[in-house]
Amino acid sequence: MDDYQSTVIKILLVGAQKSGKTKLVSTYQNLEYTEYIQTIGVDFCIKTLQLKINSKRFTTKLQIWDTAGQERFQTITVSYFRGASAAIILFNMNDADSFISCEKYLKQVKQQCSNEPKILLLGNSFSKERQVSTDEAVYFAEQHNLMYAELTDHNYDNINKIFTRIATSVLNTQLEAEQAQQNK
């Protein structure tokens, strides 16, 4: 039987105010989410996953950092970007301005993270009145070489899949780097 390797993956959640960052974390932690609570600065949680990639088994602790979307907290939140292995940039599909702001958040992640994080663009929908189409979001993700996913109130069971996907992507990159180092 293979031994489990222990890993830690730091994931940032960034995006405009009311894009669904806190709701995403609350739901992923299996907490009941009842109302919108404004994040002041940064909130933090840990979730442990058991993953198998190729023949290796991992016990992976996800450190999930929920950053505030308000402009006035930007100077506080960017200090938490260092050491992030991944980022999820959220936007509200019912708010075109939150989608437009993704460019700014992508630039921030790329400038402030000390390595090249895996980035997933996540469209959140809270009603059926969409202002951003899937095609627009997919095009943006493809242009910037990002993973893409969507969540609605009707498919929040996909949250586990999203976090597993981003963690697997980070671990695959780490395994490829280890393999390349061994081949030298």
Rank of each mutant, 00 (worst) to 15 (best):
D3L: 11
Y4Q: 02
I9K: 00
K10W: 10
A16I: 07
K18V: 06
K21Q: 05
S26K: 12
Y28G: 05
T34G: 12
Y36S: 13
Y36I: 14
T39L: 03
T39A: 02
T48K: 11
T48V: 15
L49D: 13
K52Q: 12
R57S: 14
Q63F: 01
I64C: 06
D66N: 07
E71M: 11
R72E: 09
R72Y: 10
Q74A: 15
Q74G: 10
Q74V: 11
T75F: 12
T75A: 14
T77E: 07
F81C: 09
R82P: 05
F91M: 04
A96V: 07
D97W: 10
I100T: 09
S101G: 14
C102F: 03
C102Q: 05
Y105F: 07
K107C: 12
V109D: 07
V109R: 15
Q112P: 04
P117K: 01
K118H: 03
I119P: 04
L120G: 00
L121T: 02
N124H: 11
S125E: 01
S127G: 13
V132H: 02
T134D: 06
D135G: 06
E142M: 08
E142H: 07
E150D: 03
E150W: 00
D153F: 11
D153S: 13
Y156E: 12
I159V: 15
N160A: 06
A167H: 00
T173A: 14
A177Y: 07
K184G: 15
